[in-house]
Every structure is written in structure tokens, then in C-alpha cells.
Design a protein around this nucleic acid. Structure first.
Lengths: 265, 265
DNA sequence: GGTACATTACTGACCGGTCAGTTATTTAAT
DNA sequence: ATTAAATAACTGACCGGTCAGTAATGTACC
């Protein structure tokens, strides 16, 4: 995690207090910023801390970035595009079955992106996109769109080759991506405190297995149900069971009885 | 939603400038806070704005909540627990097939929680849990844990009844919840700017279909592959996957053999 | 190769705006 | 008239952004 590259003040006098490393600084600052933005969120991250983690002073940060927001933009933009290009290249060269392509795509995605510091970006974007519409647009265009397109094209090939059932590509693509994104996001939020000790690899494996089985047999139930319905009773429309009758006397609204005590730790 | 409940200063003079509504304020403030926390994040939300949205002044907020953090805690705690109780009750009364139970559980989840203001809480928690370990713990215990337990128990019943293949319950539960969570989260972040016009209902429908097909046919490929392998080459036990160095092209297959593969427990 | 001069990467104290939290005051309600 | 719900002016800490100064490095001249 690239801590202070030279922050051990050795007793010997010859140690310079700092070095001039004009060309290494930006990347180091960007990495530190990414880590802190992911950890704390944009607003709660102090630039002093970013600078400290990169082993420089806040002034130095402003030599390379115009503002906190510029730093944020840079972090997202510079990091994610190369990663996408790589993924697309990888897949373009693949010409086996769609099933294999999908599987290896997901594993590559995990190993090359989600399990690295870049894996924090989805959380960051989910948390901040409404505060930075411009960046959100960029991210949507360059990452989400291209990512789902990638998945969609592979699945489409699978359908064409008869590996998968025909299905609604747009929605399926988003559905199968979701667990991967959640995996990445969780690792940088809930898992961190909640002491989850699930194995990410096992999670990916399970998801891939579920997904492939799903793609192969999608829609079979509909057929079965239609047959069953026809055999049994006059058609009952697809309904959502159980009206919302608020069984318990509780309101689903947030409710504060008395004054909320502060902390008490 | 829920703008200033009484903020139209009518020209008639008899109008009081404000009302005393001791018992309605807390809920109104909490809702306003939830909306803004979800929209901007905790740190970027100003209490003046929360108060304004609830139609009161900041001082009033402090009559009911001791601090910004207490407000945050209250919002999460008071809102989510009743919702969980409801879901558990609903499922306890269900005694049809596991497949039906799962499906209706997901639809209820969508209609009763995810599509309401409460649907913003997952995003809020993902974004802020590292800043509030205490709340994260609470949320993990009272929501994530209970939610996955719910799913797991239904799937376990399905396995027992022979509806589903045997599978790793822990991981599968998290995998099938992920798309629902992502749906909720997206609606409050990326979708807001990115002009996604996907239909949430169609998304849920697609996910349910995929999931059920997956559960019914989970692991069939493994069997098929084993047979193919046995037919082709002398059985070599699978080795660990290519150490994620993954220089190029080839896909690092997930290890299928090895230690774990704990089936439904 | 040593020394004086020039350049610039880097520092850290400081400033000003913002906002969580407080308090003195006003006003609805009984 | 009394009580307490609600207000609005106020305070002070904190943090993004600035800049005058400093120290590391590069270079010209001997």
C-alpha cells in the first residue's frame, strides 16, 4: 500500500528530510487518495491525511492537483480506463465456448481489478455519484456501459450457439454483474467491520455456477407452470401475494420516542 | 417527498408562524435526514438542510436528537428493525413450495422496502459503515445476518424437499441477495444521473427466474465436466489455479477440487 | 572537484468560509 | 401567567486552499 516511501528519519545525519520526486508523486498521491476516499468517503477525507499517507505535505498535493475535486476526478478517471481496455482485449481474443468465456471473464475481473485497490472504486462511485454528476456520467459511460456490453455480447454468443436459453439480454447482463459488484463493494464496507470471513474465491465460484446453470435453464419454469396451470385451473394472473396490511401495530417509518442519546460508550 | 408539512404562509394574518407538534417532529426529521443522508452521504449533509426539509429550524432538531451522529443512528435503527420483523413474520406463515416462498419473499422485499424511502438504507450503510463501526455492527447483526438467515432457511427447505440441488447455503444466500441489494443501491446512486431507464420490476423478475433456474440445476455442469474428463484423459486431480499472475490470454480456472466444497449444512 | 549561483520541489503556518452545536429570546398552547 | 416548543443569532473548531520561505538538486565557472 505504498506507505511513506522515505519516512524513517535515520539517526545518521546524511539523511535528507525529503526528496524531489516530481514524477512519482502524482501516482502516489492518487493511490493514497483512492484508499482514503474509499475508506471515508469524499467529504470526510481530509487532504492533510491524503498528503500524509503519500509521505508529503498538503502543499505538495496542490502542486499536482488543482483542488480536492480535481483529485477525485483524476483518481477515478486515470485508474479505471486502462483496466477496462485490458478486459476488452482479453475477451476479444477468446474464442471458445461462451460458457468458458464468461467464466474466465469473471475470474479475470476478480483477480485483475476487484481484488486490487481499484476494487474500491465501485463503492466510491456508488457513494458519491449523486454528488458528482459529471464523474458519474463518465463512469457510467466508460465503465458500466462498456462492462455490461461486454457481458451482453458474450451471453448473446452463448444464446446463438445454443448453450443458453433465449433471454432478455439487457436485464440478465445487469443481474449477473450485480454479485460481482456487491462482492467488491462489501469488501470495502460491511465486511471490514462485520468480521465476515467468507472466502471471495468461493463466492465467485458459487456465483459462476449459479449463473451458468441459470443461463442454461432460464425460463424452463415458465413453460412448466404454463403446462401445470393449463392442466389444473382457469388462469390466475401472476399476482403478488399478501396485500400490505401492516400486521404488527408498528409503523414502518422511522420513529423516535424520546431524545436519542449520544454515544454512551 | 414529505416536504414542509406546513410551509405555505397564507396571506391571512391569523396564521401562526409555526406549530407545536412535539410528537410528529422526530419522525419527520428522521425521514428528512434519511433522504439527505442517502442523497449526499453523512458528512456532506448539513443539519440546516435536514431541518429545512422537515420544515423546522436547526435548533428544533437538537430538541429531539443530541447530535448528528445520534440522528444517523436513530435513522438506521428505528427504520430497519420493524421492516425485518415484518419480513420474518411474512415468511413464517408461508408453507407452500420453497420456490414460491422465495419468489414472494423477493417481491415483498421489493414492494415493502426497496421501493420505499427505506430502500436508501443499503446505500447509506455501504457508504458509511467504515465510519461508524458501531452502527455497522448493529446493521450487520440485525439486517444482513437475519436477512441471509431467512433466505438460507428457505433454500434449505427447497433442498430438503428436492426442489433444489444440494449446494453451499452460505454462499448461495449471499449470491442471490446481491442483485436485490444492487437494485436498491443503484436506484439511489448511479441510476439517478446515468439516466438508466430499466424497469425495476423486470429486473426482479429476471433475477428471480435466473435464481430459480440456478438453484434447480446448480452443479450439473460439474457432473458433466467430470464425465467428460473421465471419458477423455486419465484423471488428473485439479490443481490450484495459476497463481493470479495470469500473464495473458488463458483463463485461470477456479479450483474445483481441494479442501472446501462443503455442501448444504 | 569544489564552490557559488540558479532553479524548483516541497514545507508548514496561516486565512477565511463553513457548519455542528449552543443559547437567549420569542411565541404557541394551556 | 406559565410552560415548553420553536427560533435565530451566535460561537468555535475544523478544513480546503494559499503562499512566503526553505532545502534539495542542477549547473556554470574556476
Amino acid at each position: 500500500m505504498a506507505q511513506h516511501p522515505a519516512k524513517a528519519p535515520s539517526p545518521t545525519s546524511a539523511e535528507p528530510r525529503w526528496e524531489r520526486r516530481k514524477q512519482a508523486r502524482p501516482a502516489e498521491l492518487a493511490l493514497a487518495a483512492l484508499e482514503l476516499f474509499v475508506e471515508k468517503g469524499f467529504a470526510a477525507t481530509r487532504l492533510d491525511d491524503v498528503a500524509a499517507r503519500a509521505g508529503v505535505s498538503k502543499g505538495t498535493l496542490y502542486l499536482y492537483f488543482d483542488s480536492k475535486e480535481a483529485l477525485f476526478k483524476s483518481v477515478v478517471r486515470e485508474s479505471i480506463v486502462p483496466a477496462m481496455v485490458e478486459a476488452e482485449d482479453m475477451l476479444a481474443q477468446h474464442n471458445g465456448s461462451a460458457e468458458e468465456a464468461l467464466e474466465s471473464l469473471f475470474w479475470e475481473w476478480w483477480h485483475r481489478i476487484l481484488s486490487t485497490p481499484l476494487g474500491g472504486i465501485p463503492k466510491l462511485m456508488l457513494a458519491e455519484s449523486r454528488n458528482f454528476p459529471e464523474i458519474a456520467d463518465f463512469y457510467h459511460r466508460e465503465v458500466i456501459q462498456r462492462g455490461t456490453d461486454l457481458i451482453r455480447s458474450v451471453i448473446a454468443r452463448g444464446v446463438k450457439r445454443g448453450e443458453f436459453q433465449p433471454l432478455n439480454l439487457d436485464y440478465v447482463a445487469h443481474v449477473v454483474i450485480a454479485p460481482m459488484v456487491m462482492l467488491a463493494v462489501s469488501r470495502h464496507s460491511v465486511d471490514f467491520c462485520g468480521r465476515e470471513n467468507r472466502d471471495p474465491l468461493e463466492f465467485v465460484r458459487t456465483h459462476v455456477e449459479m449463473m451458468l446453470a441459470g443461463l442454461r435453464h432460464y425460463g424452463e419454469r415458465a413453460v412448466r407452470d404454463r403446462e401445470r396451470l393449463r392442466a389444473l385451473a382457469p388462469g390466475r394472473p401472476r399476482s403478488l401475494p399478501a396485500k400490505r396490511t401492516a400486521t404488527s401495530g408498528r409503523s414502518p417509518r422511522p420513529r423516535a420516542g424520546g431524545k436519542q442519546r449520544k454515544e454512551s460508550r
